[in-house]
Amino acid sequence: MKNTLDEIVRQYREKEGNVIFLLQETQEALGYIPEEAIYYFAEELAIPPSRFYGVVTFYSQFHLKPRGKNIVSVCCGTACHVKGGSKIADRVQKDLDVAVDGETTKDGLFTFEVVRCIGACSIAPVVLINNKAFAEMTADETSKIIKKMKKEESDAATN
């Protein structure tokens, strides 16, 4: 990890970057922001860790915990809300057996999240699975896709 962080620090210095830039690069490289990275940057750049923590917790893009291999995001923006997005969210939560928005399954395979509008309102309700948008979804259809993904994951694990 140290090499990755060193490289990010180097780019930061070169590009007159800022805290958000550092964190975005870190998340891009590692998938989340480990506590270790914050302390490392703090020492290297003489910026208090609290400033990093303040920024990380302010923006919804940053995650302090590792994320699942697959990300299932259910849109609950206005158009998706009135067309039943929350019913889909409830089902996904049940299917993946996670309690809250943003939680990752114990096996680390899936992260469930509710997002507030991904700008695909004309094809609401929308589910985003690993960044691919699925249009005009229902709870049943979403459930089927998740079931299939679970099966593929377990097949891959046994092979």
Partner: peptide, 12 residues
């Protein structure tokens, strides 16, 4: 930074 839920003009 089109953040309004239910809007996608800028994106398009």
């Amino acid at each position: 930074d089109e953040g309004d839920p239910g809007a996608f003009m800028d994106r398009s």
